[in-house]
């Protein structure tokens, strides 16, 4: 179970993770904001659809790919939270169909 030992900070922001609002510290990594709120699944594996989660937390494994503000393939461990950011787990597998035209 993940836990924060962070010294008290006032600079808080609100983001949503899969639609649920959560509080985070400005500048915190998206991954830690997710994980501290119990959302450790970041993406589905491309073929099997199995749950995946961050492995290296330093940008070299690409397991923590999430969608941020609608943009897929964002590394949750490298991106920092900002006020109002919308994070969703990345559901793209090799059978996913597009639902909008991106217009």
């Amino acid at each position: 179970m993940f836990q924060s030992l962070r010294k008290p900070e006032r600079d808080r922001v609100t983001i949503t993770v899969n639609g649920h609002p959560i509080e985070a510290i400005a500048g915190q990594s998206v991954w830690s904001a997710m994980a501290l709120n119990g959302q450790t699944i970041t993406r589905r594996a491309a073929l099997s659809g199995e749950d995946r989660s961050a492995y290296c937390a330093m940008g070299v494994c690409f397991e923590c790919l999430v969608e941020i503000d609608g943009l897929p393939n964002q590394q949750a461990c490298l991106r920092r939270v900002t006020e109002g950011m919308a994070v969703t787990t990345q559901e793209i597998t090799e059978t996913t169909e597009a639902t909008n035209a991106g217009l």
Partner: peptide, 25 residues
């Protein structure tokens, strides 16, 4: 090694240093 919950020791370090985040137990 691909199961959620499996990470590297380096990941533990990065999480600790940059976000003061630890995993108990």
């Amino acid at each position: 090694w691909t199961l959620p919950g499996v990470m590297t020791a380096g990941a533990a370090q990065v999480m600790l240093k940059s976000d003061a985040m630890v995993a108990k137990g």
